[in-house]
Design a protein around this nucleic acid. Sequence first.
DNA 1: TCTATTTATTCGGTCGCCTGACGAATCAAT
DNA 2: ATTGATTCGTCAGGCGACCGAATAAATAGA
Lengths: 384, 384
Amino acid sequence: MSSPPMASVTRQLSRRSVFEALLHRSPISRADLAKVTGLSKQTMSEVIDAFEQQGLVHQVGRTSGNVGRTAVLYELSPEGGHVLGIDLGARRLTVALADIAGRVLAEADEPTDSRGGAWALDQIARLSDRLARDNHTHPSRIRSIVLATPGVVNPRSGAIEMAPNITGLGHLNVVGLLGEKLGSPVTVENDINLALLGEIWHGCAQNVANVAFLALGSGVGLGLYVNGQLVRGENGAAGEIGYLPIGGDPLQAEARLQGCLEYQVGATGVVRRYREAGGGSEVDSVRQIFERAQAGDSLAADVVDETARLTALAAATVIATVDPQLLVLGGSVGARPDFADKVARVLLQLASRPVEIRTSTLGNRAGVVGALSVALRRLHDDAF
Amino acid sequence: MSSPPMASVTRQLSRRSVFEALLHRSPISRADLAKVTGLSKQTMSEVIDAFEQQGLVHQVGRTSGNVGRTAVLYELSPEGGHVLGIDLGARRLTVALADIAGRVLAEADEPTDSRGGAWALDQIARLSDRLARDNHTHPSRIRSIVLATPGVVNPRSGAIEMAPNITGLGHLNVVGLLGEKLGSPVTVENDINLALLGEIWHGCAQNVANVAFLALGSGVGLGLYVNGQLVRGENGAAGEIGYLPIGGDPLQAEARLQGCLEYQVGATGVVRRYREAGGGSEVDSVRQIFERAQAGDSLAADVVDETARLTALAAATVIATVDPQLLVLGGSVGARPDFADKVARVLLQLASRPVEIRTSTLGNRAGVVGALSVALRRLHDDAF
DNA sequence: TCTATTTATTCGGTCGCCTGACGAATCAAT
DNA sequence: ATTGATTCGTCAGGCGACCGAATAAATAGA
């Protein structure tokens, strides 16, 4: 099924560089491709001919208006393959479909099946299938699938090892089951890591080699991008900053169980602190506390400030450890501009040197966009 | 001066892989090299002939005892080039000389010139020159030099930006001055980063892709090795964990100045804590406090325990952030087995998952060994 | 001495790339 | 409409690097 016998190393390199050029300067002629890649015109023609026969590229017209002979323009063909990005959140399931050039063809979401586990996987398969068919893409055309999930993902096996928010996900062989249901290779990756990669691909962290992505929502987590690479850690547990010894005694029972920092700034932690401070027990979401703080409730304001202070301490910890160029704040709480401002203000007093801070621009789409970007890279790597 | 016109990409790759094989399986025949690298015997002969003409390899004998024709054995020639590793500590200056194969030919050390700055650079030049001449190596043969220094080293310019321990180093163009004095390209790198690379090359962290090296001596610092790469950070300030918000109020004046954690577990911090607790003011070194603790001084023991506790908190922070496979404890305090034990015991209660802990095996040689390893890699990269 | 075995070289043959020459297609000016 | 300048794409020749097969050389063991 693959290309003819096998191309030599050097041809492989040429193909790859032509492909990259094609990816970034979409409608482009052979002559320009030759200039951009540094290859000769003939080599260019050979590679493009091969691509065309393979169905990877197709003609889209000709140049006009310039002096000299017109050139045929090429672009990556949708026939080249499709990928699927999936964000499996505790409350919402999002699926997106893109072609080999990274053009997002469609996106759909539903509330996550609350029964979790196998039901969620079935739901993913159904939604993915529908998305593909609605876009005239036969599911067999999908060549790579990436799933964003909460929890610690083993970087070697792809097993999900700690996913408290979705019941019964840890015991399933997700890669195998989902791969069988959908008929394509599946990769599983932590949702925060993928949100980070999403921001790097199409969000607020483009063209930066050292990024820290601090997500604060129902839980707290961190994505690290260092030397232009994602940091997974030996067990996939890098960025589990819920366990940072910040905001209390790290040896206390609750702190050891769910993590010291998480116990304070996780959604339940914030609500608990508000109630312990004497706030009304009818409040049961962080959003409400923020609203009350804005409405003048000084108790709520204090809770918000303390949350920002602890978040800033966590950020300072990360900055001191890996020295990123950019800190991105994300998650339903972290991405709030008012909250980010508070964090930035505390951080100014803490950090030995100032670091640029931005809030996520992709919001809750970051995960699925990141999943697409990884699926695309896998597709590209496989093609060469 | 470089090799003939220029080898093509594919030849370059072949040369490199032959070189690597030569590096690891020292005396080896062409036939075996061909098997190891997967290249054909003829290509092998071409590459080896070129290497021999270039002076990179030389014959060292023939095989014997086996059936069949004897094979000529080759190894990397010392003529291929030499490198220098230098560890400029606040109190001790160490220099080591190695050949292109990584064989350490000589090592020498002296107390650092306490006048610092330009005097220290002169001292380096003198000691390096002597070391080279004593080993019948003309200084011009030295093709790469790496200097380990405390402080933050700008990863782009090589400028030393914060070096409180050696006076007047920050204002000097060390790369330029030292390069001129010694006549070879100089690279500057943080001493803890190099100690980490030393342990990875020839110490206790070999063949591990994710390592954290926590150094506790006169100061506290961290070296990070992630995905098989050193983490420098955007400004070279990765691993500056003296500024972690651990062990006190991070907004306090002293903490902001020299770092919150450093203020507590740095050498002066430990001594200060002992005195504040009522210990004798005649004590002025950490070593003495450890000795007193062992002799039964409960005040000293408490100070040691608290130091270990804070160090464990820092370690837990790093582990939660980057999830290393291995934690190496180094530095004059950190490498003490008794201290490392205490840290490990606290860490067991803190960490969500256990991490292997080792103490540095290279001790105070780690920096210079790491400098050699980087200098060697530079030499190899330049040669191809 | 002879044979099996292993090492190294020589001799084509292939692949990928480049350069230079040339035909094809276009715009602009006469 | 013709001519010239310009650009696109192909063709042919040559080079560098690789491999496989055949061959020469050297050695251990029978």
